[in-house]
Each structure stands twice: as structure tokens, then as C-alpha cells.
């Protein structure tokens, strides 16, 4: 069942459209990664969905939500969260809970519960100004889920963190995934592959590819061979283009990447050539194209 349906979402800044006619849906209980290079329009999209930015045109529809203010159903974590540094972590969470219309008593218990969950129990009474980047990000996550939102929107939740902070936040996201629907943006594919069910790749304000991650990998997972040759004859390398089993050919930094129609056929044919030509093969790898290949291709197209 769809939780959110977006139609023709557009945001223009002057003559320039940062987001141009986006239409997509998010299903309840799924985790969707919004991928794309810098400047693709990810942040603008997320801000519009969070109610922070007004679309120039298009519709955003929450299914089954009669509430007047969609912000009640949304938790949002900005890319660079900034807090009231003079508050303690506990004070800040209680404050945001009450802003989300949670009664005072429940706000206190909810803040306590979340501080423990994001590992800030010991720092709860310290001023936020003394928190590390990772601690702030975890506090940011806590404020985003404090009112049990139907949809959790996170803008680059891990990109500014060191490896340890990143791991902590990813683990938290995996937990939260069980409780709510998540939409998060990232420019790091590995993060998307690790936790998301669906992906949407954006470039220059448009959706390039969208769908179920597993399905996309199957559809786009083409058999692929990478060859590294020591004494490659340029004419031979370029000639690979014309082999019947080669669908796509790429040659860069001494590495030949071939997308082939049939792995077995390709391997046998290539091995024969290696022997006949006396080529010094330094590396030979067979596999499938990854999401990264899809991403690079989508973005370059």
C-alpha cells in the first residue's frame, strides 16, 4: 500500500528547475534510498516532502492521513543538523516532543527512552555544544522519530560522519526501519545497498531509475567480464568491440570491461584468444554489473 504519492513535483528557483516533474510513490513500511550526485535535487525534494519548502507545482499526497499539517506525520533530519547548543540533549528532545504536540509527561518519558536508544543516556544532561558530530547526528535521529512519524525523511544521514559514527547511525536506521517508513538521500551507493528496499536515482532534477532494489539489480545485473592485460595490443583491444558476445565495451586505465550476452561463451572465446595471441593476462574477473555501474550509467546518460 502506498503511503505517499507524489505527482509532477517541481521546484523552480528563478528560471532554473532544481526539481523537475518528479512522480513517484513510497510504499508503507519500505525503506527508500534517494541516490544522485551533488546538485541532483535530492535536498530540495526532501524539503518539499517535509513541508519546509513550497513546491512550484505538483502534488504531494499522504494516503489515509486526514491531518491538516503533514508535518505531524513526518520526521525530518536535515543534512547539517543544528541545535540549540545551550540546551542539554534531554531538554532539546523534550522541547521537540512538545512541539510535536506530545503531552509533557509523555514527552519526558519518550525523550528518556530515545536518549537511551541512541546511546546518549550518559550525555543526556550535558550541553549539546560539547557533543561530537556523531552524537549530534544521533540526537538528530532521535528528534526525527520522537513523535513516531509515519514517514522518516533523512538527508544524507551518514555522509558527514567518521567510519564509527557511520556504523552507529546505520545500525540505528536498520532498527528504525522495522517501525516506520524511511526515505533517505545519499550519494554513497554502499549505504543504499546496505539498508534500502527501493531506490530512486535522480540526476539534474529528474528521476533516472526507480524501483525495487533487488528487481533493479536483477534487471540491470548484466554479465560482465573485466580483463587486465599486461602487453595489450591496442588493435586487439579495440577489436573486442566487434565480438558477437560483447554488448558494451569500455577501456580505461589498462582495464577492459565487457558486458557480454553469455558468460560461458565469452569466456571460452576469450581464453582461446589469450593463448593464440600469447597475451599476458594479469587479471580476469567474471561477475555481474552492480548498482554502482547502474548509478554511474544513469547519471552519465
Amino acid at each position: 500500500m502506498n503511503l505517499l504519492e507524489v505527482g509532477g513535483l517541481t521546484k523552480r528557483f528563478g528560471a532554473n528547475a532544481a526539481v523537475d516533474g518528479l512522480s513517484f510513490a513510497i510504499s508503507q513500511g519500505r525503506c527508500m534510498a534517494l541516490l544522485g550526485p551533488n546538485g541532483a535535487g535530492k535536498t530540495t525534494t526532501l524539503k518539499m516532502l517535509s513541508g519546509l519548502l513550497e513546491p512550484s507545482s505538483g502534488t504531494i499526497r499522504f494516503i489515509g492521513e486526514a491531518r491538516a499539517d503533514i508535518r505531524e506525520s513526518i520526521g525530518y533530519l536535515p543534512q547539517y543538523p543544528s541545535f540549540f547548543n545551550w540546551m542539554s540533549g534531554k531538554e532539546f528532545l523534550e522541547f521537540t516532543a512538545k512541539l510535536a504536540r506530545i503531552p509533557a509527561k509523555e514527552a519526558a518519558s519518550r525523550a528518556k527512552e530515545l536518549l537511551e536508544r541512541v546511546g546518549l543516556k550518559d550525555a543526556a544532561k550535558r550541553k549539546i555544544s560539547g557533543y561530537s558530530g556523531g552524537m549530534k547526528q544521533r540526537l538528530g535521529l532521535a528528534q526525527a522519530v520522537i513523535h513516531r512519524p509515519k514517514l522518516l525523511i533523512l538527508d544524507e544521514p551518514v555522509s558527514a560522519l567518521d567510519p564509527q559514527g557511520r556504523r552507529e547511525v546505520m545500525e540505528l536506521l536498520k532498527e528504525m526501519k522495522r517501525e516506520t517508513t524511511i526515505l533517505f538521500s545519499t550519494h554513497i551507493l554502499h549505504d543504499a545497498e546496505e539498508i534500502s528496499d527501493d531506490v530512486m536515482i535522480m540526476d539534474r532534477g529528474h528521476i533516472v531509475v526507480e524501483g525495487d532494489l533487488q528487481q533493479l539489480m536483477r534487471d540491470h545485473g548484466k554479465p560482465q567480464i573485466r580483463i587486465k592485460v599486461g602487453n595489450a595490443d591496442p588493435a586487439w583491444v579495440q577489436g573486442l568491440r566487434d565480438r558477437p558476445f560483447v554488448r558494451e565495451f569500455e577501456f580505461a586505465l589498462g582495464l577492459i570491461t565487457l558486458q557480454v550476452t553469455n558468460l560461458h561463451e565469452a569466456r571460452e572465446s576469450l581464453f582461446r584468444e589469450f593463448v593464440d595471441q600469447g597475451l599476458e593476462i594479469e587479471g580476469f574477473e567474471m561477475g555481474q554489473t552492480t548498482l554502482e555501474d547502474l548509478f554511474m550509467k544513469a547519471v552519465q546518460a
Binding site: 519546509l52 499539517d69 508535518r71 536535515p78 547539517y80 543538523p81 543544528s82 541545535f83 521537540t96 512541539l99
Partner: peptide, 13 residues
Amino acid sequence: QSGSAIMVLVKPV
């Protein structure tokens, strides 16, 4: 400027 206002305005305020 600092971005702390986002934390308020993203709630139903």
C-alpha cells in the same frame, strides 16, 4: 543562518 530554526519549523509549528 545556523539552521536551528529548521528543527522547530519541521515540527507542526
